[in-house]
């Protein structure tokens, strides 16, 4: 289920990230005030910070799951409570990996470092 993703990582001032020029439909995982993982390649992105780091990043694998799939997986592999808002981003330990979750009304995206992907996939039962 987990597939390689092409993401862009951005590190910049928080203010520049807040106002970054990223296409509206693109999912932005704001992993820290000064850092984001964007589900798009870097050519579509610009940030008003001359020192920003904007790099393509192939080091992540991800999977979309319906909530029917996600709920039992999370019950057995995630010991913290998801935020209630949709859409929203959440991150923390899932299946012992540092995971990023993108939560939508009818589905969820899980993103993990590729170096953990096989073990997370085992835990997903795939």
């Amino acid at each position: 289920m987990l597939e390689p993703l092409l993401l862009t990582r951005i590190v910049s001032t928080p203010a520049a990230l807040d106002t970054a020029d990223i296409p509206a439909e693109v999912i932005v995982l704001r992993t820290a005030p000064d850092e984001a993982l964007v589900l798009a390649d870097s050519s579509t992105i610009s940030v008003d910070d001359p020192h920003a780091i904007i790099v393509d990043d192939t080091g992540w694998h991800g999977a979309w799951m319906s909530w029917d799939q996600a709920i039992p997986f999370l019950q057995a592999n995630c010991a913290w409570e998801l935020p209630a808002e949709r859409p929203s981003m959440a991150q923390g330990r899932v299946a012992d990996a540092p995971a990023k979750l993108w939560l939508e009304d009818d589905r969820m995206l899980i993103v993990v470092p590729h170096v953990m992907a096989r073990d997370v996939a085992d835990r997903m039962g795939s």
């Binding site: 590190v11 910049s12 850092e35 020192h51 780091i53 790099v55 990043d57 192939t58 080091g59 590729h114």
Partner: peptide
């Protein structure tokens, strides 16, 4: 200090 840090250990 005004710096940007990106850990690329798992990316590269």
């Amino acid at each position: 200090h005004d710096i940007r840090i990106l850990n690329q250990t798992l990316s590269l």
